[in-house]
């Protein structure tokens, strides 16, 4: 029984990080109208930035988080106009071409990192938070707790920004209807760039913590892309609120499968459920997304 509680709790704590990496992804889909296949690569790159901070700079990755955020936000700011350009180009099939473009970027990131660091798994050594916290019969790794705390703060700030600021209002307007948002004086292109760079920074910060909880290799990007997809499909594509629930569901699911079935089948089971959701309710479990 305590194993079950332990497993669910571990899953919920990691689920927080899945929420963080999916929420920006979902929003950037809403604003740019492009499913970003590079989402997992941001996680992978962020984790390797964390590895670099401990091995080269000897700074604790937690203290390094703001640097990771700024760096990847800048990278995202540089990439976003290209995606925007492809998405709004006048060639035959802009939506598909934009998909292919982010797919190309993801492949480039994966191939580049594989060439640079090889296939060996690394772990981000987070020194500040170690050991476990004992709560009755269950033991919670402090790192997971810290990861969840980070996710809660980051997601909370993100939601505050989205629902309590004028820029956030503009972002939501663009996600709803680009043309009308443009007519209301919102600079759609600037907003898109802004959201994408925010998302890149947020996701790579989550990557640092994910790289601390699990080990990571340069070819792990697609796994996390799949996780993010799972979350947003379960939530309904473009629905930010659904992500909060779906991310936690994924965390618990992954944890349960790893403990009670086998880690070898996580992706297969995740895919099975993804498929069922698409068959039964393509707009997500809360029926808020767009089909």
């Amino acid at each position: 029984m305590s194993l079950l509680i332990q497993t669910i709790l571990n899953g919920l704590l990691v689920g927080g990080l899945f929420v963080t990496l999916s929420i920006g992804f979902s929003l950037s889909f809403g604003v740019l109208d492009v499913v970003d296949f590079a989402v997992g690569e941001w996680v992978m790159l962020g984790a390797f930035a964390g590895v670099a901070s401990t091995t080269w700079l000897r700074i604790d990755p937690i203290a390094f988080l703001p640097v990771v955020f700024v760096f990847f936000a800048v990278v995202g700011w540089l990439v976003a106009p290209l995606i925007y350009r492809v998405r709004n180009s006048r060639n035959a099939r802009p939506a598909l071409m934009a998909l292919a473009f982010t797919f190309g970027l993801a492949t480039l990131a994966r191939g580049g990192m594989l060439t640079a660091v090889g296939f060996d798994p690394r772990t981000v050594k987070i020194g500040v938070v170690q050991g476990t916290v004992t709560l009755g019969a269950v033991e919670i790794p402090t790192l997971r707790l810290a990861g969840f705390a980070f996710a809660a703060v980051a997601t909370g700030l993100f939601m505050l920004f989205l629902y309590r600021t004028r820029t956030g209002l503009a972002v939501r307007a663009v996600a709803q209807n680009k043309e009308i948002a443009g007519l209301m004086g919102v600079d759609v292109k600037r907003t898109s760039n802004f959201v994408y760079s925010l998302y890149a920074g947020l996701t790579s910060m989550a990557g640092v913590l994910i790289g601390g909880i699990y080990s990571i290799t340069a070819q792990d990007g697609p796994t996390y892309t799949l996780m993010a997809f799972f979350v947003v499909v379960l939530a309904g594509l473009g629905s930010v609120g659904g992500v909060l629930v779906a991310g936690l569901v994924l965390g618990v699911l992954e944890s349960l499968v790893t403990v009670y079935v086998s880690a070898d089948f996580t992706l297969a089971i995740v895919f099975g459920i993804l498929f069922l959701v698409l068959v039964i309710s393509p707009r997500g479990i809360l029926r808020r997304g767009t089909a």
Binding site: R85, A100, F101, G104, T107, L108, G111, G112, L114, T115
Partner: peptide
């Protein structure tokens, strides 16, 4: 073939652009 993966990715992106 890892560097080839990177080249393939760059090529996809460049062709689309």
């Amino acid at each position: 073939t890892t560097s080839y993966i990177a080249v393939v990715g760059a090529l996809v992106a460049l062709i689309v652009l």
